[in-house]
Design a protein around this nucleic acid. Structure first.
Lengths: 215, 215
DNA sequence: TAGATTGTTAATCGATTAACAATC
DNA sequence: TAGATTGTTAATCGATTAACAATC
């Protein structure tokens, strides 16, 4: 462990791999594995050992020469690094099928994010239960935010409401949007957006399928 | 348009951008825009004009000097290229919240993929309606596949059933898996897997949020 | 100590950008 | 024809891999 105050910015390529490392390390930990070498992890994750060491060293190095990486320690460091210990809070906007699926999923809890509320505009769903939460009306979002500030707005609304919701949320000062709407919302740079474009993913699969066939 | 028989393999970086181009072109088309230059598209998509031209030229070039790209034509070419005209068929495996959300979504239809069936193992849901489909028992999957071969198995089962389902599907000869299970299933190389790791996406957002805060 | 494996620097590879000739 | 904008080659940049000295 050489540098601890690693404020040099980490390359996007590395950032994109971080969550995957987290997932594999969690797995190893759950399976009771105590230590892992970059070579073993590389085999497991289909990467090169060199890349793994290079990646971890962006953060000062989590390993020990001649030993490798302690799974529990490395996992803990990744967890901190990724913000899973920050106790972030999220609300789901749009209580349709997808919003409902997300509200019920373990996705959040396992990563230290608490879903504190669900919002919608439809009279049909406002007031109804979704898991342990009651769906609130969108009009009460601003008040809610002031009383219970949250960090992540999960956008699960129809396309035509997406930009409006993003504007609303960004104006309140919510720092991050997890965007499932399938369109790319425009927000001021202080608001971070992470897109999940399911359609893009499906089409990429379709492309690969077609390539495979035409050979 | 220089080369038409472009069998040189396209770089992964380009492939990853293709669906996004498709989305923006569809948008332009729906808004009635007739032509677009690489410079305009670059501004719209936050890329460089150079990159866009480079990307399209992997496939032989879709534009015309002095004019730019005809939106309708470019969209059509992308559509073909991405396989949206192939009439692929998919089944959803796992009729929980996420499977149900996907079954109801327009995601498939808009990309030329038809969802032909939904499968589950739970007696509670088998036989019930999901949209216009009736949930079938997993035991009938093999028979179904033989009668109505499909190209894409959408895995929406719990983690502990994921590898088993992947094995089943791969053994049948299904050429592609769209994997929402959050674990990385092992399948023979003839089976293409496209992963949607929602948890990874959330955690990446969490990371960025934390970085933003500590500045 | 010797063996193992990291941290780190240097070399290679691939992807992006810049530049400009071709051409509509 | 002149102006615009592509297609394409060359230059730059960034990311990955290889190699090895540091060190547990």
């Amino acid at each position: 462990m050489k540098r601890e105050n690693e404020e040099k910015t980490v390359s996007p390529a590395v950032v994109a791999r971080l969550s995957r490392y987290y997932r594999f390390l969690r797995d190893l930990k759950e399976r009771g594995v105590e230590r892992v070498s970059s070579a073993e992890l590389a085999r497991l994750m289909d990467l090169t050992a060199s890349q793994i060491r290079q990646d971890f060293n962006c953060f000062g190095g989590f390993g020990q020469q001649g030993y490798g990486y302690n799974v529990e320690h490395l996992f803990g460091e990744l967890r901190k690094l990724l913000g899973a210990e920050e106790g972030y809070s999220a609300v789901i906007i749009g209580a349709g099928n997808l919003g409902s699926a997300l509200a019920h999923a373990q996705t959040f809890v396992r990563r230290g994010v608490a879903v504190s509320a669900v919002f919608d505009v439809s009279r049909r769903v406002v007031g109804s239960a979704m898991g342990s939460l009651t769906v609130r009306h969108m009009d009460t979002l601003a008040d809610y935010y002031r009383e219970h500030p949250f960090q992540i707005a999960v956008l699960c609304v129809p396309k035509d409401a997406a930009q409006f919701c993003a504007d609303t949320v960004a104006e309140l000062g919510v720092p991050a949007i997890w965007n499932f709407t399938g369109i790319e919302v425009r927000v001021p740079p202080r608001c971070i957006v992470e897109n999940v474009h399911l359609g893009d993913s499906l089409l990429t699969l379709s492309y690969k399928l077609r390539q495979r066939e035409s050979r």
